[in-house]
């Protein structure tokens, strides 16, 4: 029983780490550009399939290194061509656009790579369990969690210590004043979008190694990622971090006692938190607060 609980808590933390990675990207884009990016799961799929397509040539490590930036470049093009014309309009426009885009990406993936799942090979040494007792902790799972935390740490450093990051944070508070201080806010939004999509691409590569590839793999992660943002408090990145891990673990633990409710519990948790703290766990402090 203890082992089963531990197994599910570990699972929950790993799934939660994915929610966090997805949700941080969503949060960045939402905070600065007021775009609710429903295509975020689509970019995760793109990241995964790029890794799959290039790994025969560059290997697993090459794919891990190259797929996220390539996904970010695709994100830049999408932002420039499709999303930028909608800034300043009702957020509903970009929501509808990205909602449609999500379907297009899914179908395009199906069209190019076929509807069946594809395996994505990871290095043999990462696939081994660490011990017989704790069979569920494979090297790859630890590696994934480590990668997620490295990405979060780098994002934190970017936002805290670079001028780009400071301007992104300033822009989420008052974009007009950032523009009045001579900053090209169009470029700022593009770069910020690219950072968010980079994180989605990274999630895609990491998820591919654990679960294999499917054209629909992004959809299941998207809703919980939105909920992670809401639970943590919109506008707060530390909140998003805590929110993602929290709903991951809650879902994992529920799977032990009442498997059927493991998905519903996420929504129940959100409802309870919104009833007690309407702005989410970290809502009042605001971004990086």
């Amino acid at each position: 029983m203890t082992l089963l609980l531990l197994f599910n808590i570990t699972n929950g933390l790993i799934v939660g780490a994915f929610y966090v990675l997805m949700a941080l990207g969503l949060s960045l884009i939402l905070n600065l550009s007021n775009v609710i990016n429903f295509a975020h799961g689509g970019f995760l799929v793109i990241g995964g399939y790029i890794a799959y397509a290039i790994s025969p040539y560059v290997g697993f490590w090459g794919a891990l290194l190259l797929a996220p930036p390539l996904t970010a470049v695709i994100g830049l093009v999408v932002e420039r061509v499709l999303i930028r014309p909608l800034y300043g309009r009702d957020p509903l426009y970009s929501l509808l656009l990205t909602f449609g885009l999500a379907f297009m990406i899914e179908d395009l993936t199906r069209f190019i790579f076929g509807p069946q799942g594809k395996p994505f090979a990871i290095p043999a040494f990462l696939a081994q369990p660490l011990s017989n007792e704790l069979f569920f902790i494979t090297g790859y799972r630890l590696f994934m969690v480590a990668m997620v935390f490295v990405a979060i740490a780098l994002l934190f450093v970017l936002l805290r210590y670079t001028r780009l990051g400071i301007r992104i944070r300033a822009g989420t508070l008052d974009l007009e004043t950032v523009a009045a201080l001579g900053i090209n806010v169009r470029l700022l939004r593009s770069l910020n979008f690219a950072v968010g999509i980079f994180l989605a691409g990274l999630s895609g590569v990491l998820a591919a190694g654990q679960l294999g590839l499917e054209p629909t793999m992004g959809t299941g992660l998207l809703m919980p990622s939105f909920i992670a943002i809401i639970v943590g408090g919109i506008g707060s990145l530390p909140g998003t971090l805590v929110g993602g891990l929290l709903i991951g673990v809650a879902s994992g633990v529920t799977a032990v006692f009442f498997p059927a409710a493991s998905e519903a519990v996420i929504y129940v948790l959100m409802a309870v938190i919104l009833l007690t703290r309407p702005r989410g766990l970290f809502g009042e402090e605001g971004m990086m607060g």
């Binding site: 400071i166 944070r169 300033a170 201080l181 900053i183």
Partner: peptide, 15 residues
Amino acid sequence: IFANLSVEENLKVPL
């Protein structure tokens, strides 16, 4: 003023 940013960070925003 960017209320959530430190004074030093506020000064790093301008071009």
